[in-house]
């Protein structure tokens, strides 16, 4: 039996298919800017890799920002629970998860494999992937490289963490002063880390701490966060996939909760269509 987890983030969509024993395949693709997200095609790709069809998948759990209207999902669960489950499966010792996504960041508390508390950033780009994207654009550096570059800094500049707009201005000011890009980026990462840290502190940071999401791929940000947290943090080998992994784990559990008939009934309801996002009306565009 196969179980699928589909994590439709604001910028990246991830699919993970697993069986009882192991993860069989993963696909990671941009969510895309078009208003009908082609998550079904990404799902298809994963199925093709395993030579499977949708009928082979016992249960599909959708999660992430775009989870609400997935016509082929059997259940939707928040990415908060899914990240928690994924990380808990990979690293049972983790009690605090910091998830840094494209549009938001979250703090998640785990206790014995249960979600006990969480916190999300509020209407503000500082401390999200978007913030780093803005700054990397401003500096003309590739987003993927900024973390590494920041580590070469010898004298990190002091960028205040209050607001993206201000940070932009401060960055420009530093540039005009001739501060090196390394030092500016180190300052930016520190500011971002401090913002995230002060948010996650609301739910009390306890050992062990893991970082997930796109932000976890940025080594500069991870180091800066580690500095704020005060002890080493765990970064999973593929931090983008923990949500989809958690979703697939839930999918396998759900399968066991219901009868075969119910399962088939659910599967028959699946419609292999594109995914609508909540902020889009079908008539638009």
């Amino acid at each position: 039996m196969f179980y699928a987890g589909l994590d439709i983030g604001s910028t990246i969509t991830k699919v993970l298919i697993k069986n009882e024993r192991k993860v069989c395949t993963t696909v990671i693709k941009p969510t895309g800017a078009e208003h009908r997200r082609l998550a079904n095609e990404i799902m298809d790709e994963a199925l093709r890799k395993l030579n499977l069809t949708t009928a082979n998948i016992s249960y599909i759990v959708a999660t992430g920002y775009g989870r609400i209207n997935v016509p082929f999902a059997d259940k939707q669960v928040t990415e908060i629970t899914c990240h928690m489950r994924g990380i808990n499966w990979l690293f049972p010792s983790v009690k605090t998860i910091i998830d840094i996504g494209g549009q938001d960041s979250k703090g998640i508390k785990v206790d014995n494999g249960k979600l006990v508390n969480f916190v999300m950033n509020d209407k503000c780009a500082a401390g999200t992937g978007r913030f780093l994207e803005v700054i990397s654009d401003l500096l003309g550096v590739k987003l993927d490289d900024i973390g590494e570059i920041s580590l070469q800094s010898t004298r990190p500049t002091n960028i205040s963490s209050i607001c993206t707009v201000f940070a932009e201005q401060e960055t420009l000011l530093q540039l005009s002063k001739g501060t090196s890009i390394e030092d500016i980026l180190a300052g930016i990462h520190r500011a971002s880390a401090s913002r995230i840290h002060s948010m996650v502190k609301k739910i009390k940071i306890e050992k062990d701490v893991a970082i997930t999401g796109g932000g976890a791929k940025n080594i500069g940000l991870c180091k800066a966060l580690e500095e704020r947290v005060g002890f080493p943090v765990i970064v999973p080998p593929e931090p983008l996939i923990t949500g989809a992994l958690g979703a697939a784990l839930i999918a396998s559990e759900e399968t066991k909760k219901i009868s075969k008939e119910e399962l088939i009934e659910k599967q028959l309801k699946r419609r292999w269509e594109a995914v609508t996002f909540f902020d889009e009306k079908p008539t638009k565009g």
Partner: peptide, 12 residues
């Protein structure tokens, strides 16, 4: 001030 503001934020 900034240090204090951050603490106030994380106090909720």
């Amino acid at each position: 001030a900034e240090k204090h503001l951050e603490i106030s934020d994380s106090e909720g």
